[in-house]
């Protein structure tokens, strides 16, 4: 999937440049200038965040403010990890994100495969149901979900944070769209060889679905890592806070004016995402584009 769309993307560009030196669409230095100004506005706050996390508190009171820290310090990070319980929040976020991602990879591919390649009673109805739930606002189900979790005693637990997100309609849709492209002949051949349906799924279908699994895995991990609404509701005790909930609590509470600390906290959330994103950026943008356009 990624490779094919890569080639699609490259092909017209080279073809065009060969016979038309000026390229197509808008050209000129002012396009670059506008794009660069936009880029500075978009990326600027991130640079500010990184630099700010190394500033001691008094430097934030300077007018005009300093960009480069004059007296760089690791004190913000030290307080984050020693005074506040950030290692714990990091652990919570990681456990939730890994579990949710694992669940989605397994469960969404299972249904995705069934919807794309197996004939069974109720298949079309199930697919329509998946499509319909794509647009249900989270705030509609959140109240009964909270009541359910408190009845089950799952508030302030990993179960409460993880269970509702183990499979998502978006994931099912993405996997189904991808699995439609797997040739039926391969599955038939495996069936004639006497392979069981479970074996076909794990040994034939899953290896072929690797590109879609990578996209789904990254998008799910990221969504879970950044998720805020549900963790805010279901985790009310400090020790079950995820990183965003912890940071929001400190940013609106006792540490409101402690800019350096808050920026260091932000960086702890952003950095893992940033690394994954920069390494695998094609998977993000093309995965989204593929589901978006085909949708």
């Amino acid at each position: 999937m990624t490779l094919a769309s890569d080639q699609l993307r490259q092909a017209p560009v080279t073809a065009v440049t060969a016979d038309r030196p000026r390229g197509r669409g808008f050209t000129g230095w002012w396009i670059y200038l506008l794009l660069f100004i936009g880029l500075v506005l978009v990326v600027g706050p991130f640079i500010w965040m990184v630099l700010g996390s190394f500033k001691p508190a008094p430097e934030f009171l300077r007018i005009p403010p300093t960009w480069i820290p004059e007296a760089p310090t690791l004190d913000n990070y030290r307080r984050l990890f020693e005074v506040l319980d950030f290692p714990r929040f990091f652990f919570n976020s990681a456990v939730v994100a890994v579990a949710v991602t694992g669940g989605n990879l397994v469960f969404c591919s299972m249904v995705g495969y069934a919807l794309a390649k197996l004939k069974f009673v109720g298949r079309n109805q199930l697919f329509l149901l998946v499509l319909a739930t794509l647009m249900i606002p989270g705030s509609v189900t959140v109240i009964p979900l909270y009541i359910l979790m408190s009845m089950l005693g799952l508030t302030n637990s990993f179960g409460g944070l993880i269970l509702p997100f183990l499979a998502t309609a978006f994931g099912v849709f993405l996997m189904r769209q991808f699995m439609l492209g797997i040739p039926d002949e391969l599955l038939e051949a495996a069936r004639i060889d006497g392979a069981s349906e479970v074996r076909i799924f794990f040994q034939v279908v899953m290896p072929l679905a690797t590109p879609a699994l990578a996209t789904l895995g990254i998008l799910t991990f990221l969504g879970s890592w950044n998720s805020f609404f549900w963790p805010l509701i279901v985790a009310s005790e400090d020790e079950m806070f995820t990183l965003p909930v912890a940071l929001a609590t400190f940013a609106t509470g006792a540490y409101q004016a402690d800019h350096g600390l808050l920026m260091a906290g932000s960086l702890v959330i952003v950095l893992p995402v940033l690394i994954v994103f920069i390494l695998l950026q094609r998977l993000f943008t093309e995965g989204i584009a593929t589901t978006g356009i085909k949708g």
Binding site: V106, F107, C108, M110, V111, Y113, A114, L115, L118, K119, F120, V121, G122, R123, L126, L129, T133, I136, V140, T141, V142, I143, P144, L145, I147, L148, L163, P164, L166, A167, V172, E197, V198, F201
Partner: peptide, 26 residues
Amino acid sequence: QSLAGWFFSLPFVLIFAVFLAIPLIT
């Protein structure tokens, strides 16, 4: 195929019933 179809859909259907469909009605 019919059995396999429902077998593969079961975990998702269960998760959706408990954490989406029932809350939606409730």
